[in-house]
Simulated scan of single mutants.
Amino acid sequence: MSGLTFEKVLIIGVIAVFLLGPERLPHYAAQLGRFVRQLRDMANGAKDRVRDEMGPEFDDLDWKKLDPRQYDPRRIIREALIDEDPMKDLLKPTVSRSVNPDSAYLQRKRSVVKAGEATPFDSEAT
């Protein structure tokens, strides 16, 4: 990052005065003011649109947590190594309560075709 300090801005301003001259400087200063105003209006419009799109969750959002400067890979690795067994939750059998006991898969699984017996035939199947 360049780190634009007050001294650098002052030097740029002095150079602009010498290059533009006193007669054209007010015109370009007014243009710069209009440009900054338009940029600020566009940023506020974008913020308002995001607020409209997200609804009430926009105000509840913690912007400090989303700051990329808060990202610390050492902390993330430390927390991952301290965790006893990160795979234990993945290895637990999951019980699905929304399984349909009359599903075609479970009906096929229950009906075992014995040797010499004709396989089931569905006349409606294509």
Rank of each mutant, 00 (worst) to 15 (best):
N100S: 01
V50C: 06
R51K: 14
R110T: 12
L91Q: 09
R49P: 06
H27F: 07
D52S: 09
R75F: 02
V17E: 10
Y71G: 00
F6P: 05
G116R: 02
Q107C: 04
V95R: 15
D62L: 04
E124F: 13
A125S: 14
L19D: 06
R108M: 02
Y28M: 08
R34H: 08
V99H: 12
T94V: 05
M87L: 12
D48A: 15
P93M: 05
P93R: 10
R34E: 03
Y105I: 07
A30Y: 09
A30D: 05
E7P: 00
F6S: 12
G21E: 02
P93Q: 10
I82M: 12
L81P: 09
E117C: 00
D48Y: 13
R69D: 00
Q31W: 11
R75M: 02
E84T: 07
G21A: 01
V99W: 10
D67W: 01
L81E: 12
M42Q: 15
V14W: 11
E84Q: 11
S96G: 05
Q38M: 09
G45F: 14
R49W: 14
E124Q: 15
K47A: 11
V95E: 13
R49H: 11
V113R: 05
L39V: 12
V112C: 03
V95K: 15
R110H: 08
T94M: 04
R49M: 08
R51F: 01
T119K: 07
F6L: 11
G45P: 05
F18I: 10
V9K: 12
T5L: 01
R51L: 03
A43S: 13
L4N: 08
A104Y: 12
I82F: 13
R40H: 08
R51E: 08
K92H: 06
F121P: 02
I11F: 10
L39H: 13
